[in-house]
């Protein structure tokens, strides 16, 4: 099966920096990986598809339609959009902010922004979920940076570092298979790349704060984040 081959291929070099290796993922055409990840969710023989609430493409389409409705001030569309996505927004806010009240406030702000700015959503610039999570993460990070010193965040961050691999357990937005691809693709990052990306995403840390926390050189951390995200992107077939 193609997936197995990809796992092996990418898995072998997981402790090396991707840009310094030859003959591995970076050299294979991205389309190859793209096929693997993009087509599997719709493969007829996959058992997991029974558990899939909505394949990602259909969900994206639905969310885009709903955003169109919200732009026309359709409250029913807003309610459905909220129903489909609020667990993601609130879940991420809780990870970044920890405090339930701050997380609620942030979720509230995010959906008010959705209401206000749905007309600005441009499908050519990305998926609805990406649009939403971009707004959400930015909001949460703004909040955490204004309410806590970086020292607090670093101290607190330990609680939220574990198991992003298992984030997808109750995955309703997007498919189980996509979630499995994520777990597999995360495994293709070096541990230090994973760590740096997580610290930045869930810790709300800047690259400089990540560097301080990991006691690493600033340029090194910048490279890790860039290389880690590029490798994930390639493995997930994002194009």
């Amino acid at each position: 099966m193609i997936e197995e081959r990809q796992v092996t291929l990418l898995g072998t070099g997981s402790r090396a920096e991707p840009y310094n290796r030859g003959g591995t993922a970076e050299d294979s055409p991205p389309g190859d990986l793209c096929l693997v990840v993009m087509e599997t969710p719709n493969a007829p023989h996959t058992e997991a598809s029974a558990a899939v609430t909505d394949p990602p493409a259909e969900l994206s389409h639905r969310l885009a339609v709903l955003l169109g409705g919200i732009a026309r001030r359709d409250q029913a569309a807003f309610a459905e959009f909220y129903q489909l996505t609020s667990r993601r927004v609130y879940g991420m806010a809780r990870r970044v902010l920890v405090d339930p009240e701050l997380s609620e406030d942030t979720t509230q702000e995010v959906f008010l922004q959705v209401w206000q700015n749905a007309a600005k959503f441009d499908a050519r610039a990305g998926s609805p979920l990406s649009w939403l999570m971009t707004i959400s993460h930015r909001r949460a990070v703004d909040r955490v940076r204004s309410s806590q010193s970086s020292t607090d965040r670093e101290a607190r961050y330990g609680a939220s570092t574990q198991d992003i691999d298992h984030d997808s357990v109750s995955d309703e937005v997007g498919s189980k298979l996509e979630a499995e691809a994520v777990v597999r693709c995360l495994g293709t990052l070096t541990e230090t790349q994973q760590e740096s990306v997580r610290l930045a995403y869930y810790g709300g840390l800047t690259y400089r704060e990540v560097a301080e926390r990991l006691n690493a050189a600033v340029p090194t951390i910048k490279s890790r984040i860039r290389d880690g995200l590029i490798r994930l992107k390639t493995c997930l077939g994002v194009s």
Binding site: R87, R88, G91, S130, A179, S239
Partner: peptide, 16 residues
């Protein structure tokens, strides 16, 4: 692309 990747990768959910 990075944003799509992040939205796919960090997918923790919690009921508000």
């Amino acid at each position: 692309q990075a944003r799509e990747t992040l939205a796919m990768t960090f997918r923790v959910e919690e009921e508000p």
